[in-house]
């Protein structure tokens, strides 16, 4: 049976790992390749590296990092951040990334999803969606959660799926960094209405939160950062726990 995936996410700035609390106030958490290797040995199923550097120079540093990750790590990894056109995707895949994650550029230029899917296959294209529950429903945000858009979460998720996204990485901005659990209701709705895998992101604080994301949220994978980086939850222990809870897990 297909296993539910546990995915540590590493935010990278100038070649180092950082993690924001509610997308602001960055705090450093170590060497990205070493961290990735450690996670892989603990049983992480995939890794996500998000480049939050904006400069051209930083982008080159990130590409070099992708090469180092590919050279040292024998599990799949996704890279995101600063991907605006097909050439960026080509560059990162050629550096050794398995998938790319696009967010703001997908909202600004939805056609990019179609292009990535056509050139590299659907499975390469992860569309990340940052959304927040507003009085008039779930709204999608741009630029790391700084700019509100008129896109509604569920209709946008449906559109990216139809355009050829292979997976959706859904972050609830209200839950992100506050460690009170994932946005399970919205997750469940996404997972039930779409035929592509949904990765839950934002809100992991305890092992039970992961269980709930898989059972209540029907997520295919769960992503977290700080609980892993700061050793609050060990991936190996988390996977043992989930297995005991009857969830299909690769041990």
């Amino acid at each position: 049976m297909l296993a539910k995936r546990i995915i540590p996410c590493l935010d990278i700035k100038d070649g180092r790992t950082v993690k924001g609390i509610n997308f602001i106030n960055l705090r450093e958490a170590g060497d990205p390749v070493e961290l990735g290797q450690a996670y892989s040995e603990q049983g992480a199923d995939e890794l996500v590296y998000l480049d939050i550097t904006a400069s051209f120079e930083g982008r080159k540093t990130f590409t070099d990092l992708v090469k180092r990750v590919a050279a040292h790590i024998s599990i799949p990894f996704t890279v995101g951040g600063g991907i605006h056109e097909l050439n960026d995707v080509d560059r990162l895949l050629n550096a050794g990334a398995d998938k790319v994650s696009i967010n703001s550029s997908a909202i600004k230029n939805p056609q990019l999803i179609d292009e990535i899917a056509k050139h590299f296959g659907n499975q390469v294209c992860v569309v990340a969606i940052d959304a927040k529950q507003m009085p008039d429903g779930w709204k999608c945000f741009l630029n790391g959660g700084r700019v509100e858009t008129d896109k509604e979460l569920f209709s946008w998720a449906k559109e990216v799926s139809e355009r050829g996204a292979g997976e959706i990485l859904f972050t609830s901005m209200d839950h992100d960094g506050v460690k009170t659990g994932f946005a399970n209701e919205a997750l469940c709705q996404l997972s039930s209405m779409l035929s592509i895998p949904i990765i839950a992101s934002g809100g992991a604080g305890t092992k039970e939160h992961f269980r709930d994301a898989f059972i209540k949220g029907k997520a295919d994978a769960a992503l977290a950062a700080s609980v892993f980086h700061f050793g609050e939850i060990q991936i190996s222990e988390l996977k043992q726990y989930l297995c005991k809870e009857g969830i299909q897990i690769r041990l």
Binding site: D45, E167, P197
Partner: peptide, 15 residues
Amino acid sequence: KPNNNEKVPHMGWNT
């Protein structure tokens, strides 16, 4: 062609 709401692509670790 999913017959039980399986997701496509088949993505992840399987036995």
